[in-house]
C-alpha cells in the first residue's frame, strides 16, 4: 500500500490508463473449439458421442504429446493410468454454440451431428485446418468406443 502511495506522489500529472487486450489460448477460440467438436463427432460411430467421450477425446487431441500418448494407450503399448484426463469446461461452451448454430443436437447425455453439422464437418475435413487434430481423430475415433473410454476412465484393462 505504502508503495502505491509513493507512486501516486510521483505521478502527479494527468495520466490515463489504457486497457490492453489479453491474449487467449488458441483452443479457447470459439471457432477452434466448435470445429474440434464437429471433427470429433464426425469421427465417431453414427456421428454421435457421449459427453464423457467428448471430454475424453477433446482433452487428448489438444497437444502432440497427448495425441501420441492416446495412440499408444489404444495400441496397448502404454497403460490407461499413463493418460491424464480432464473435463474441459470450454468444450461444454463450444457444444452450446454448436447447438445454437444448428450443427449439433443433444439428447440428454449424448451429442450428435445434425445434417448441416455433417456438411460442415465434411467441409472442415477437406480443408487444411486442424489437420493434426483431424488425422488424430480419424485414426482413433473408431478405436475409442464408448466401452473402451469407460474402461480407460476406470483405469481398467480393456
Amino acid at each position: 500500500m505504502a508503495s502505491i502511495n509513493i507512486l501516486r506522489d510521483i505521478y502527479s500529472g494527468n495520466f490515463t490508463v489504457t486497457e490492453r487486450p489479453t491474449p487467449v489460448a488458441g483452443d479457447m477460440r470459439i471457432g477452434w473449439g466448435q470445429s474440434l467438436l464437429l471433427l470429433l463427432l464426425a469421427s465417431s460411430r453414427s456421428q454421435k458421442c457421449s459427453l464423457q467421450k467428448v471430454h475424453f477425446l477433446a482433452h487428448l487431441s489438444r497437444t502432440a504429446a497427448s495425441r501420441q500418448l492416446t495412440r499408444d494407450v489404444l495400441a496397448r503399448t502404454k497403460e490407461p493410468k499413463d493418460l491424464s484426463i480432464r473435463v474441459e469446461p470450454w468444450i461444454n461452451r463450444a457444444a452450446a454454440f454448436a447447438i445454437a448454430n444448428g450443427y449439433v443436437s443433444t439428447s440428454g447425455k449424448q451429442l450428435q451431428l445434425t445434417e448441416s453439422g455433417k456438411k460442415a464437418a465434411a467441409a472442415l475435413q477437406r480443408e487444411e485446418v486442424l489437420a493434426e487434430e483431424r488425422d488424430f481423430l480419424q485414426a482413433v475415433g473408431k478405436l475409442a468406443t464408448e466401452q473402451v473410454v469407460e474402461h480407460i476412465m476406470k483405469m481398467e484393462d480393456f
Partner: peptide, 30 residues
C-alpha cells in the same frame, strides 16, 4: 502448437461463410 491453433482459427473465419453459419460468430446465435 498454439500458433497453429490460431492460424486454424483464422482460416476458419473465412471458411465459415462457405459452410453456412459462421464458426466464430461476433454475436450470440441465440
Amino acid at each position: 502448437e498454439d500458433l497453429q491453433k490460431h492460424k486454424d482459427a483464422k482460416k476458419l473465419k473465412t471458411l465459415g461463410s462457405t459452410i453456412g453459419r459462421d464458426l466464430s460468430p461476433h454475436h450470440c446465435p441465440t
